[in-house]
Computed example of a mutant assay.
Amino acid sequence: MTTTSPIRIGVLGAHSTGKTMLLKRIEMELRGNGVTPARTGSIGKRAALNGLPKMQKHTVASTEWIITQGIADEIAAAAQGADVILADRAAHDALAYFNAALEFRGEQIHRLERERLLLLASTQLPKYDLLLATVLDKTIPVEQKHDYDPRYRVLVDHHVHALLAAETIPHLRVTSDPASQANAVAQALEIYLKAAAV
Rank of each mutant, 00 (worst) to 15 (best):
Q187M: 02
H159A: 05
T36E: 15
L132Y: 08
V174G: 00
I26A: 07
L12E: 04
R114E: 08
G32F: 07
D149G: 04
S42F: 13
N50R: 14
A182F: 03
I7F: 07
G51K: 12
Y192E: 09
T123P: 00
E29L: 06
M55A: 09
G51D: 01
A47P: 14
G106K: 01
K19H: 04
A100R: 13
M21D: 08
D177I: 02
S180H: 03
E167L: 13
A87S: 09
A90Y: 06
T36A: 15
A195H: 13
E190I: 04
F104D: 04
G41D: 07
A82W: 14
D137F: 05
T4M: 15
H159P: 06
Q144T: 04
R46H: 01
W65H: 07
Q187K: 12
V160S: 04
D83T: 15
E29S: 15
I7M: 07
I71A: 10
I109Q: 15
R31W: 08
L112Q: 14
E29C: 07
G41L: 11
T123M: 05
A38R: 10
T17Q: 07
F104W: 05
L22M: 05
T17I: 11
R39W: 05
R8V: 13
L118W: 11
L136M: 08
L131H: 00
I71D: 15
M1Y: 05
L132M: 07
E29Q: 14
M55N: 11
A76K: 11
A38Q: 11
A100E: 02
A72V: 11
A96N: 02
V156I: 01
A48T: 09
T2D: 12
A133V: 14
L118D: 06
V154Q: 12
G13D: 05
L164G: 00
Q144E: 07
A96L: 03
T68K: 14
H171T: 04
L164S: 02
T4A: 14
L130D: 06
R31K: 13
A79V: 05
Q124H: 13
K19A: 03
L193F: 04
L136K: 02
